[in-house]
Amino acid sequence: MSTPIRLGTRRSALAQAQSGHVAAALERISGRRVELVPIVSEGDTNRASLSEIGGLGVFATRLREALLAGQCDFLVHSLKDLPTAVPEGLFIAATPPREDARDVVITRDGTPLHALRAGAKVGTGSPRRIAQVRLRSPRSEVVDIRGNVDSRLARVETGELDAVILAAAGLSRLGSETTLKREELGLAEWPTAPGQGSLAVETTVDAASDLRAALAELDDEDTRLAITVERAILEGLDAGCQAPMAAHAVVTGDSMRVRTIVYDPASERRIGLDVTESLNRGYIRSHGSGDDADAADGADPNRAAREFGLSVARRLLEQGAADLVPREQS
């Protein structure tokens, strides 16, 4: 019997569920058994607010250390939790097809977020969501919360909170069943974090060629191009993955559209762009960006997508976004 492939994963129910989906797909492709290797990250043990510790990549650092130490063969991350810098010796081998990238509001009675009563308590630990709630429901009180999906739902069920904001993809992957009501928030007016709804499959640059080839079959090109643009905007802003900003890109036919907003957490000020770029033979033409990134035959589509995202970030900075986002910490 062949040696199983070891998949390093956090111990949370959501991490185990999304890792299980990837493991099943890889078993079908490779014909080998995939074994989950639970790893405890700082984000699982440090109960401080994500707004205080999130920029450090707390959900990824310990897993990456385990991968580099040979304790597992590859990792599955929630892409929105990953810092934009990939450590030396590692690379993202695949981005499977993206799930629903929207946020959802969970309430007991289905009251829309904008119609919640004055003083209603809305739970979220994300600076981006906090800023968005304050714009959509300014009479509400935002409560900074941590915890898994079930514990957050329970706080609404018991009446401790009137609503929580969660990622639609996480609810879908967990298959959470609840009598609570949900309101889907449209991406046009409520864009989400770079990479939300996407997974990153990461391994070492010197991984066995058969493993790399099998992981590559999990990759979805449209998802990779979209998240590359989104994460390049985050990189260009020099902001952490818990920054009060949103970016969502969609590939449709021969074009890509990205909506991005940087929020001021202390006021209603925000800076946004809605940009559509042409695609040419699967990669982006960066019109007039000044980076000489126009696509040519044989060019790397991911490099072109990154240049596009960086050009969008520069435009945001030119409009004053640097005053609104904290710098990334290493």
Score class of each variant (00 low, 15 high):
A66G: 09
I271C: 03
V312L: 13
T192R: 07
L166V: 11
E221C: 07
Q132F: 07
L63E: 05
R98F: 01
D291A: 11
A208K: 11
Q196V: 07
L166P: 01
R62E: 15
D254S: 12
G170M: 06
I39Q: 00
E328C: 09
D219R: 02
G290L: 04
A200F: 00
S330Q: 12
R155I: 01
S19N: 07
I106M: 09
T252V: 14
L161F: 03
D100R: 07
D291I: 09
D274P: 05
E221Y: 11
I261F: 11
R285T: 14
V104W: 00
S30W: 10
A115L: 13
Q18S: 09
A25W: 13
E328I: 13
T111F: 03
V104G: 00
G320A: 09
G170D: 15
D219M: 04
D210I: 06
P87T: 06
D291L: 14
E217L: 14
S51G: 15
E88G: 15
M1S: 15
I284Q: 00
N148Y: 04
A313S: 09
D81H: 08
A321K: 01
A24Y: 07
T95W: 09
R98V: 13
A118T: 10
R182C: 07
L310H: 06
T178F: 09
P265F: 08
S278M: 12
I29M: 07
S140Y: 00
L273M: 10
V250E: 15
T84M: 01
Q16C: 10
D44L: 10
L185E: 00
S19W: 00
P97V: 10
K181S: 14
D264N: 12
I284R: 00
G123M: 02
G110Q: 05
I261D: 01
R182Y: 06
V156A: 03
D238A: 12
N148T: 12
R281K: 12
P301V: 06
D73P: 05
A131Y: 04
A243D: 10
